[in-house]
Design a protein around this nucleic acid. Sequence first.
RNA 1: GGGCGCUUAGCUCAGUUGGCUAGAGCAUCUCGUUUACACCGAGAGGGUCGGGGGUUCGAGUCCCUCAGCGCCCACCA
Length: 879
Amino acid sequence: MKFSKTYEPNQFEPDIYALWESSGAFRPAEQGNPYSIVLPPPNANGNLHIGHGLTVAVEDSLIRYHRLVGDSTWFLPGADHAGFETWVVFEKYLESQGDSRFNHSREELYQMTWDFVAEQRGNMELQLRALGASLDWSAFTFTLDPKVIDTAYTTFKQMWDDNLVYRGEKTVNFCPKHQTAFADIEVAHKEEQGTLYDIAYPLADGHGELVVSTTRPETMFGDTAVAVDPDDKRYQNIIGKYVKLPLTDREIPVIADDFVDEAFGTGVVKVTPAHDHIDFEVGKRHNLPMISVIGEDGKLTEAAGADYAALTIEQAREKVLKDLKAQDLLRGRKEITHSVAHCYKCNSILEPLLKEQWFVKTEPLAAKAIEALRENQIKFYPASKKQVVINYFKQLKDWNISRQIPWGIPIPAFKANDGQWIFDTNTDQPFIIKDGVTYYRDEDTFDTWFSSGQWPYITTNHLEQPSPYYPLAVMETAADILFAWVARMIMFGLYRTGTVPFKDVYLHGLVLDEKGQKMSKSKGNVINPIEIIGKYGSDAFRIGILSSRSAGLPQAFSESKVVAGRNLCNKLWNISRFIQQMVDEGDFKEAVEEGRAAPLLPAEREGRSPVKTGASPEVSSEKSPFTTINMGEDWICRELDHCKTELDKLIGKYRFAEAVELLYDTIWNKYADWFLESQKIYKNTPLLQKTLEHILIMLHPFAPFLTETIWQTLSWTTDLLITQKWPAKLPYDPMTAEQFETLMIIISTVRGHLQSLPGGQKPNLLFGNDSLVNDNQVLIQFLTHVPAVIPDDTPQGMRIALPNREIYLDIDEQTLKEYKQNLENNILKLGAEINTLETRLRNPNYRDKAPKELVEETQKHLEQKQTTMQRLKNELTLI
RNA sequence: GGGCGCUUAGCUCAGUUGGCUAGAGCAUCUCGUUUACACCGAGAGGGUCGGGGGUUCGAGUCCCUCAGCGCCCACCA
């Protein structure tokens, strides 16, 4: 293969991925420490979004790094049926077809959704490949695979037997549009303006009234008590009495309960146990009846009375207020801001409805989790999230796992007419008969998180046979599913396996648009990772999205960082092309013969034994005398070595942005700009080859396609880059490396002076007693483009502004004078400007009367100019 | 109501346990057709690290406080 003149990622990426996949490189190696990551399963029904792009960039970089380091890596793919999420999409589709869920049985709907999803599936997998994810596709798990369902069932059964799962009737968060209940965590609370109404409830004995404050007058038909603060002096004498419930003929008791805040509203609360979570608890405490007056359709039921039945909540509220007013029972109203529960998909207000569901008793599970976290069994990145999770566990309430949607894992429970529930996994049967009793299937499905919460030990098959890949090395996922997913995996992991499911948790924040706004379809600011890849290449995307990003924070996506990534790829492409050219030209042998080149690693020249790494076997056998002033070789070996050790540290701490920046700097500013430039003079081809190999290996985790393509194209490399060994230390002489650093400063300073010379002159460089310059005349000349570098006992002209160095640019008196004059002129001009500013600032009139910002700005300008002045003066004294 | 996070160059952001003249990319300005690369090379400008106070030999980094922005949790009838 040959290097094309230009870097065009789209031409090789798919082929390279296929090469890896067919080679078996994605499978865990036989040898090495287990290192496993499970890709958070993307929604099978959708396309990947930018967050997935970030996930893959992070996880695949970790996997590739650990593969190179010699670990036995296992990167596990999967897809999520995403119960409710997908169901919403499917139901919309149904509606668009003029169809409805109510026209079909559960089995039909399940099959229809399956087919619907099947059409989309595969998209996501192709996109993961485009991102370069080195996933073991043979280990692919779908969240509705039999093994997932089996595990969900055995866990459910075990929890049932352990009294950790129970059937209970409680107020649940019910979406009238989607016709399903939600877990607490799925509820979207939103601050809203509402009205607090004061309504008079006449005392049953006819002596006065009690005024209750409520935002939900329409639920009053379900009131079974009114409550006051037990310490509220105003109401002491009526606790235990009865009030008449307006618009009905019922009488309800006045109870005292601590939950009432006497300072809020009138200090009297209506208690509606069937339609409010708090009231439900109150009702339990006080043994109150629970009357449901709102149905699952979001309309009032017969229990609300004939006048109100079938009205929507809004209609009912209006009518109740009107009717109360007619009876002169409305005592006041007040606008308040309060938080209202919404469906996170359709934004409907969620109704608390009394409903029988399956609940997980979370307290014992959460306690175990808290213990494990307190013992630091899991490391969090960012670290602050640990306490956040602990706090979540502390207040966690029982978890409703029943969903009234067909798209999911059927709950393996059957109920007899006498209310007896039994566990059975024959969920494809509408009913079963056992010992002559008929049991009917629970039509509900599990909350998606009930099964995906068990993902780590399901995917690694740890329950069947203890796996060295469990616990996972790290769980990398979006910070916003910390509670929904990560917390649950910890609870389940401890429950089923006795160990935490992963050693580290790395959370990435939301990827925002370029302006720092949340991406959303409605705003039209969604950035599609696949489009970015098409434009700049997969590697550029990965580098770009990892740059300038730290754990846990919501941060903007910056296309300019992708551009920088693309530019780096292009740079490395050309570096490789150039080195290959030199190898092809056989410059190396020729150079050795002419005594221009040192074909050995720097350390070998001094008789130290070389450390052999990677390929290029021809290097070590040849011996040749150390010939010349080639200090850049020691220096680049030192820099590459430093880069490698730093990378080890940074990747170990999940500091990807810094790792990428380090590689960028090393490859571009060090390797290309200095070493490669110097090698145009001193061609040490074997070293060029060796160092290029190291660079390719080190960049591979972040830019896999590019580096592998180069590896496959170079004439001397063998096998696959993806399975090479992480570089070993390169030998070098630290003193020599340090001297090169000084040389770099000299060259840069000379360049600076040349640029500011009047008339764009190109003078010679003269030097006196300076061995460093003396030894590097050719290189200095080449890199500064002066016509010549000449030793001179009495050098003169313009002195280079470096202390203790006898280096001069050979310019005539006139030019020097001109240059100095220029400097002095600049100093004068600047001095005048500074004076003006100072006078202005000293003027009390100006200080007092001018706008403050302007005065501040003046001050700022002054300081800037003073700094510049100092620099110019320094230069003048030195030359 | 409770909690978390952010505020550093024009823009988007790095900056681990406090330590040399605070960094990157992109953008800007000047110069450059040196045969790897103009997706390039060389040089340069630009920041009182949100405000105020404190601890320290030393603070972008720790503490207090104020302001702005963002997020999460919550039994705000």
